[in-house]
Every structure is written in structure tokens, then in C-alpha cells.
Design a protein around this nucleic acid. Sequence first.
DNA 1: TGTTAACCGAGACGGTACGTCGCGTCTTTCT
DNA 2: AGAAAGACGCGACGTACCGTCTCGGTTAACA
Lengths: 224, 224, 224, 224
Amino acid sequence: MPHDSALTQLEFRLQPDAATIRPGGRTARVAKDVRDATLAELNEHGYAGLTVENVAERSGVHKTTIYRRWGGVDGLIVNALDLASQDDWGPPDTGTLEGDLTGLVHEVLELFTDPVEGIAPAAFIAATYHSERAAEAMTSLYVDRHARAAVAVTRAIERGEIPADTDPGAVVRAAVAPLYYRLFITREPIDRQIADQAVAAALAATMAGVFAQSPKSARSSRKR
Amino acid sequence: MPHDSALTQLEFRLQPDAATIRPGGRTARVAKDVRDATLAELNEHGYAGLTVENVAERSGVHKTTIYRRWGGVDGLIVNALDLASQDDWGPPDTGTLEGDLTGLVHEVLELFTDPVEGIAPAAFIAATYHSERAAEAMTSLYVDRHARAAVAVTRAIERGEIPADTDPGAVVRAAVAPLYYRLFITREPIDRQIADQAVAAALAATMAGVFAQSPKSARSSRKR
Amino acid sequence: MPHDSALTQLEFRLQPDAATIRPGGRTARVAKDVRDATLAELNEHGYAGLTVENVAERSGVHKTTIYRRWGGVDGLIVNALDLASQDDWGPPDTGTLEGDLTGLVHEVLELFTDPVEGIAPAAFIAATYHSERAAEAMTSLYVDRHARAAVAVTRAIERGEIPADTDPGAVVRAAVAPLYYRLFITREPIDRQIADQAVAAALAATMAGVFAQSPKSARSSRKR
Amino acid sequence: MPHDSALTQLEFRLQPDAATIRPGGRTARVAKDVRDATLAELNEHGYAGLTVENVAERSGVHKTTIYRRWGGVDGLIVNALDLASQDDWGPPDTGTLEGDLTGLVHEVLELFTDPVEGIAPAAFIAATYHSERAAEAMTSLYVDRHARAAVAVTRAIERGEIPADTDPGAVVRAAVAPLYYRLFITREPIDRQIADQAVAAALAATMAGVFAQSPKSARSSRKR
DNA sequence: TGTTAACCGAGACGGTACGTCGCGTCTTTCT
DNA sequence: AGAAAGACGCGACGTACCGTCTCGGTTAACA
């Protein structure tokens, strides 16, 4: 995740939109206006305040048009999420797995700790509970993120830092899960110490072979 | 958490209501009817389908009365959450920390895997994103749960099973976080293997001293 | 009508209440508080703003009590109207019918022209359209007023000023009707000139024998 | 006023609606349905029983739409009143002023005496006390009616029947005022005799020069 | 000088209607 | 022909005031 802001993170480039039918002219301009308005509304009023009517008003695009092209609030959210997943983010490369994971969790920490820009991400989570489409888009976004972050783990395997049969995705999840858990489930505050602790825990488990993909080692680790 | 169902979990005892001003007669009956209807609606239609109007209809209590006493959907949720936190749940006691934690995560697993009753808890999470009051109630509920579960860890410390300065709450969170993360954030499926893996990871981290409350040992574990 | 104000006009004496069972103490005090609050509310917010709840609030008398004793908004209005009819008003006595009638219409004029106190009377008219009881009370009030004013006409007959068989009530009505018509039906403004014109018209008709009670003279006047 | 009924009187022509932006199809149909339902409700339940909800129900037009287009009960009334003022009514032409005025008051008499259709007009009066907009519409309706009726007086002037400087409107008002006064203010019953008496009084006053527009003659008439 | 019937306070409730918001559809008009 | 403009249907919201009920506490008239 980029270290600057949620908006930058989500607003990203438009080129991938080339997949749509009409890249140039009014159609594209309308799409951009709607997307901008969606994100702005999301940041200002959160998910609950994101209405088709307001987006129409703000973007200058007629309500009917929004329904035609995006099909409702759902579509607006999905639209924004899709874009978010199309950025060129990659995990840091510090030379050690601990360093990489620490960088990763700190990015999460900063992203959601920022008092202003941090609103939008929570709004996406909220959207998830109202729209199946949003939920799906969300899932695929996270899958994508995990896959990208997993290369840091793969590098560690290649360096011989951790067991060869470690499941890269599992390590990434283990590192970030405690943060998201506190952020969105229990709503407890998070700080640098907690983030570092999560990394340490993930590393300890990894070294102990908990995330080994061969059932044997996983079992043995539990049997101790 | 009890292993039977979300409803049982939340519907718990009524006696605490005695704290209210008018314990007898209609007032209490109304309160019960509304609570029942709230939970039923939540289970059937989820948070999005929980409307004051429906609860009024179902409970036979008039809409105006619900607004007067509970102030809207918010209050209904909080009401249910408060009750949920008043049960007498406690963690299993199997003799080993691994056993206790495994029992704990399996409870979570069953609770949210159950196709019918499992709807309500997700609804509570959703509510959290719409109502500050619900979010606060949710937080205090989780804090309560963690505190109760922590006794299993304390027992392990007393048995000398794990480092003496281990933070009990941290261990509990580490064990359940991955499950909630997948359930409510990434919406990936969970199963027994993942639950067990989460316990194993938490244990490994604990043994490595990651959750030690003295900064020194935490650091040393990371430096390793 | 008294020349001072609508409030004075309506607030009148309480003694007739002696008909009720408990004249003394709290009961009477409650009655007075309610009546005062009713008139105050009527003057401030008009009929539409006269609610049992507000009167209860303002008077410090409980809502339930008001319903018990007055039965609702209707009763409050009727209560006020009854009192109004119990004042000791009488028409002026200037020595000529024209003078008496002019004094009469000027009283009406002033009463309803006064920008502040004039609100209440209109409120009574409004009440008339919502409550049969209020309408009846209103009718009997006007009948009473007409009867009192008629003495001025009777005096004129005795003085030989007008035809002996003149119907006193008809003359009074003829004099005031145009004012009320403009005030409450067409809502056109009224002024001294219009009031005087109404008197002149009533006099002219009277002199022409239009209000003679023997059918013969009335007919002859129409035949011209 | 047409001699048939209140409904006919008010239901009049629809064409003027062409002034609105979308004359065709649904919009116009909705307008008509709402107007019909309004009048029907008014006739059946009077003003007090005229609720937006009932009109919506009866007309098959949704409540929200009514609020959007008419803004509430006020607007419904005004709508009906406006229509009422758009008819092509004119006073009778019998050849004498007495005949014309008698025809006029008899129309009023019949209109408000009719036990069934006569409800609506009273409802309009009632509306007047609750809605400034309704009151204004009412005023302009009466002004319009008076202006039309005044031509009968003008004809009489041209025939030399009455003083040349007579104020036509004043004569009309003088003739109808007593009826309305009894109908809506004192709620006393009216009959043919009273109506005829009112005409006779108005004529007598007119002949005496009471309604002369030059101040001089008016004064002289009062001096007798 | 008690007693006791009448009256009052307090609070919750059911009920009707209000006026508003936002969604999503459909129709008319305009280009 | 097809999109812009806009009216509409629809479900729910949250509020105001109505009138009722239950309970419990006062008070004033009368024995």
C-alpha cells in the first residue's frame, strides 16, 4: 500500500479502464467524474452518506445515467474497489523478512491511523455488509494484496531464512490479521507496538513451522 | 461462547432487567417482545433487513414506543448486545493451554459456520458500521469476552506451561484474530485446519516470549 | 364587547364555576391554571397551536387531568367560550340608534384590528370548524351578544326613532354582518369607513321597514 | 355560482392545466386523480378529515408524490380553490336589480342548504383557518366572484335604477354578507325569508345612497 | 379529627398522520 | 433512436399529538 493516503491509494490510474468500451470523450469523462464524486462523498460522509443522489449531484452526471452504467450504490463501490486493486503496489524489500513484514504492517497502521484519509477504508468495509457485489470485490482485492505481499515471504524462503515449505500467504495473514481484528472487529486502538508484536508473532510461528504446507510438519509443530 | 447457537447466546437471562424502573407487568413484557423480535429479524434478514417497522410489526409493540424507549435501530442492537454480554460464558478447561485455545477457536468456528444461526453475529458487525452506539457496545462486549477467555491463559501460566510474564489477552487475541479476519474482513472461508493453525501460531509465539509484558523479553524474541 | 382586549373579554369571572362540586382549594386552582394556559396558548399560537400537551406543560397540570376534566381540546375551548359569555357587557347608550350602533361596530373593529390581542377571536372561529361542542358554545355566545345589543334598538323604538315593529336582532345583525363577513369569510381588510357604512346601511334598511316583523310591511318594502 | 352543486362548481374544466410543463400522459392524469380524490374526501369527511394519506389512498397516487407536487393539505385545498375560480359563472339577468340580487342570494342559499353537496364549501372555510395559502386563494376567489356579480349592479346603474355613483361591489357584499355571517359565524339557520330580507336591506341602503362612492352623499344619507 | 371519595401526578403505551429521504423505475421531451 | 430531464412509486424513517391505561399519592368535604 502506498504510504501517502487512502485517496491516492484508491483514486489510482484510469488507464486500466481501457477495458471498457469507450475510452475517449464524454463517456470516459463521465466515468471519471462519477468515480471522483464517489470517493469524495465516501471520504466526507462515509458509507452511510454515500447516496446515488448525492453522487449525481456532485458529479453533475444525471441519476438515471448512474443507474444505467453502475446500477446503484453497489456499483459505485465496486467501481472504486476495482480501481484500488489496480495499483502497482508491492511490498517493501529490506533484505529480511522481519523488515519486510514490519514495513507492511506499518503501512497498514499509518493508513488507518490517519485521522482524515482513513475514513474511506472503513467505509469500504461497511459497504461489504450491504452489497454482495462489494463483498466479492473486496475479497478479490484482499486476495490480490496477499498475493503481492507474499513475494516478500517467497524471497525469505529463497534466502533460506525460513522453512522451505512455508505457506507465504499464511505468514502475511498472520502478520496483518491482529491489526484488522482490532481495527474493525473489536475497535480497539492500534499502535506501533502492537504492529511489531504481530510481526514477531508471525515470525515465531513461521520459524516453528506452523505455516508449513506439508501436513506432517504442521502437525508435528502442534504436537510439540 | 456457548456452542449451541447465536440465539441462545444472545437471548440469555432476563433477570438483569430488574435493574430497570418498572420490572413488572406490561413494560417488562414489551421489552422482552421487542428483544425477541429484534433477534429474530436479525437472524432472518440480517442487519440490512432490520427495520424498526418490522420489529414493531413482529413484536406487536407500536413503532412509536420503540422509538421512545430504544431510540431507533441503534438502540435495538445495543439492547441485544448488552444482553449478549450478560451471559455466564467461560472458556473450556482441558488441562492444557493448547486444548483450551483449541476449544475456544472451535466454538468461534462453529458459531459462524452454522448456516442458519450464524447470520446474527455478522449482522452485529454490520451494525457496528452504522451506529457509534453499537460500535461501543460491541467493543465492550469483546473486551469482556477476552477478559473471560484470558483465565485459560492465566491457568497455563500457573501451571508453568508458558512464560510467567505472558500477556493473557494478547494470546487470546492472537488465537482468534485470524479467524475473524478471514470471516469479516477478507470473507475467505474458514475451517478446522485454519482454526488449529491459528492456535498453533499463537502458542508458538507465546512460547517464544512474543507476548511477554516486559519489553526486554519481547525484544529479545524478535532479535533472536 | 369590552373595549380593552380579547383576553379581558374572555378571561372573565370564575364564580359561576360554583356549580361544580369542589369550589375550593386545588381543584379550583387547577381549573384556573388550565384556563389561563389555554388562553395564552390560543393567543400565542392560534387554534392550530393549541394542544392538550402544551396546555398541560404550560399550566403545570398533568395531561391526564385535563382529559379527565375537559375531555380534550374541545373542552378547553368551550370552557373559554362559556366564560366569555358570562361577562357583563352591554351596548353603549349615546341617545341615538346611529350612535349606539356606531359604538358597537367600532368595538368589533377595534377588537379584531388590534394586532396582538386580536388573534384569539379568530382562533375561536377556527375551533368552531373542528368541534361541534365549540360550534354550539359559539352560537349561544353570539345569541347572547345579540340579545344584549338588541336593547339599544329597543330603546330607539321606545324613543320613536324607528318603526315600532322593527326586529331588534335583525338590525344588530345587519350592522355587524358586513364586518364579520369581510373579516372571516373573504378576509378583506376592514376600516372605520366600512364600519360606518355598515351602520348607515342597517339604518337605511330599518327606516325603510325592511326589518319590520309584520310580514305585510316587509313585503311592501320589497315591492317598492 | 352554478345552481347545481358544489362538486360541479369546483370540478370544472381541466384545460388550464396546460400551463404546466408536462401536459401529456401520466402527470396530467395524476393531477386529475388527486383533485378528484381531494374533492371527494372533502365532501365526505370535511376539512378535518382531509388527510394527505387518505387522498393518496383514494387517488392511487403515492403520498410522496402528493407532498412533492402539492406540498401538503394546503396545496390540495388551494388546487381545488383555484379550479373553482376558473369557472364561467355570472350573475342572473332578470331585468331588475332586485331580481338579480334575489337570484344571487338564492344561489348561495341553495348551495349551502343542500344537505349533501353543501359540505365542501364549509370545508373550504375551515381550511382558511389553517392555511395561509388557502386563505389567500379563498380571498382571491371571493374577490373574483364579487367582481363578476358586480356587473348586475352596473347594469342597474345603466338602467338608471339606482344612484349613478353606487359602488357595485358594496351592494353585492351587503346582499350576501348576512347569509354568510349566519352560516359561518353564528351558525344560525338561514332560509328564503332571511335571504330576501338581506336583498331588501341592501336595496334600501343603495337607494338611500349609502353605497355612493362620493363621500358627500354617503354622509347625507346617514344624517337623514 | 379522622375517613373516604374525589381528584391529581406520573409514566408508558397504542394509534393516526405527518413530512422527509433515498432508492430505483418509468415517461416524456428533446436532440 | 436514444439519452437527458424529471415525475413517480415505494419503503422506511423519525416526530407530534392524540387519547387511554395503570399505579400511586393528595386533598378536601363530611361524618
